[in-house]
């Protein structure tokens, strides 16, 4: 699934990385706990989270996660957006709550993502 499709499904707004929406996402992880994300091993994964601090972007950087979706209308600060920009990480925000956002993506076919670890 491409980030463009994900944006449509979640009715999301792109905060940075508009030109990267053709990137393919093969798996996703929904969590507010960064240590859980760090225990998650998947390629070309995307993160959905309700946390909006800079450590979300750094966690994504370490995990080669190229896209982060902030749920429930959470707004990151300008510093967080520019950190994501400098790390080449796409960020979007959606008004949807976590459960609904994950459910919609799963129903649309983004099913890969259970951790093997």
């Amino acid at each position: 699934m491409t980030l463009r499709e994900i944006k449509e499904i979640l009715d999301a707004t792109v905060l940075t990385g508009e030109e990267e929406l053709d990137r393919e996402v093969k798996a996703a992880c929904g969590s507010d706990l960064m240590s859980d994300v760090l225990a998650f091993v998947k390629d070309q994964a995307m993160l959905l989270t309700g946390l909006v601090n800079g450590q979300v972007i750094r966690t994504a950087e370490m995990m080669d996660i190229h896209a982060v979706i902030f749920i429930r209308g959470k707004k990151p600060s300008d510093e967080v957006v520019s950190l994501a920009e400098s790390r080449d990480i796409v960020i979007m925000e959606t008004e949807l709550p976590m459960y609904i956002a994950c459910g919609m993506l799963y129903s649309a076919g983004l099913t890969g993502g259970s951790s093997r670890a």
Binding site: M34, D36, A39, T49, N53
Partner: peptide
């Protein structure tokens, strides 16, 4: 509140 402190740091490092 920042998403850490869940007691997974050292286990993750070991892993």
């Amino acid at each position: 509140e920042l998403g850490f402190g869940a007691g997974m740091g050292l286990p993750n490092m070991k892993k």
